[in-house]
Write a protein that binds this DNA or RNA. Sequence first.
DNA 1: GGTAGGCTACCGACCGATCGGTAGGCCATG
DNA 2: CATGGCCTACCGATCGGTCGGTAGCCTACC
Lengths: 211, 211
Amino acid sequence: MNQAVQGREGVELAPNRYREILEIAARMICEKGYEGASIQQIAQACGLTKAGLYYHIQSKEHLLVEIMHYGMDLFEERVLSQVESIPDPLERLRTAMAKNVLMVTSDRTKEITIILHEHATLTGDELDRINTRKKRYVRFLERSFSEAIATGQIRRVDPKVATFAFLGAVNWIYKWFQPDGHISEEQLVRGMQDVFFGGLEPRSSAKPEGS
Amino acid sequence: MNQAVQGREGVELAPNRYREILEIAARMICEKGYEGASIQQIAQACGLTKAGLYYHIQSKEHLLVEIMHYGMDLFEERVLSQVESIPDPLERLRTAMAKNVLMVTSDRTKEITIILHEHATLTGDELDRINTRKKRYVRFLERSFSEAIATGQIRRVDPKVATFAFLGAVNWIYKWFQPDGHISEEQLVRGMQDVFFGGLEPRSSAKPEGS
DNA sequence: GGTAGGCTACCGACCGATCGGTAGGCCATG
DNA sequence: CATGGCCTACCGATCGGTCGGTAGCCTACC
């Protein structure tokens, strides 16, 4: 059960196999939900029997845990760490939104969809651990909103509510977005930034928004 | 199997029993998810055996269908029909947001949470039917945004993106809101309206920042 | 260089429990 | 005595998980 991945850094094949299993399992769980996807089906999709799959994983629950942490790894690598150091708070928020949107729309990251959808599936310590990682991002957004208010770049709004409005607008995308639909990824990124940060009230100072 | 509810409008007792079952089943499915809540557990929560429950329902899937349609009934009654006739498009949207938020936060409406969470559980015709009802609301919002743009009350934004940002900000609430948490329902309603419709950019018309 | 030992990656068979669903009977009320 | 509302008892299928066993490969030792 995943001892190979604990090995030295020279080893490459075994961890790849494990990651491949995580990827396939993520696809299944993403399609059918955690409870809806059976170990049987996941094993079959991996080209294994149930017993063969259990050589690699501890339990179904732990499989979900690993998928979620892998998803959080990806998110922190591609979003959080990319924007944390941006000095300007508003630009930081706008960039975070762009990268966050792409994380949800890009169909390569099923793990993100699982994290978003299965928010109440885990329990106890494992749930706490995932939530702790999520909260890091939430607090990052809250701090950035507070900063942007302090610099006068945005209006005085409740940073907590603004954060959850931001997260809702962006994360909800997984529920309705279709990669081959009427709205493209780029269009969505620009549109979301425009609606959220551009505001809805008409500008008194005429500023041509059209492009 | 639910013949009673098909009866004439005069009958009252049987439909009440049926609605009670829907309510209890909704609570269970809301807590454990559709796949996670078994017919056994739902029956027990109703004070029935499994066979006893099956006297009232057709199947587990049809039970979910009925819960969702009941939820849509509630939503259309308490939100859509309440705001549709508001002449001013911006006020219409603000009121829709307020009522929509309360629909999600009010813990009485587990059916709404189920509709939001189990967006991909149903398949085929039943999914289509639910989605058709959902789309009525989506199109209502789109039209209202378009109208508000036409009247010049809000900036020229993409009505589709604005609609999904609205829906995301509001519907995402079910994932994080705690009725006894730091944020009250009223605070959330005002905060969301403020962030979404008040905009984030500072007003050029000098408005004192401190308060 | 043959072979013994050990290790990785896997399988078939099986476990008890539970799944959604049903057949047929029982009992109270009208 | 008929029906509504519910029960006991059961169905086949599947659930998550484990068992002993083994094919193939690598390494060590004689």
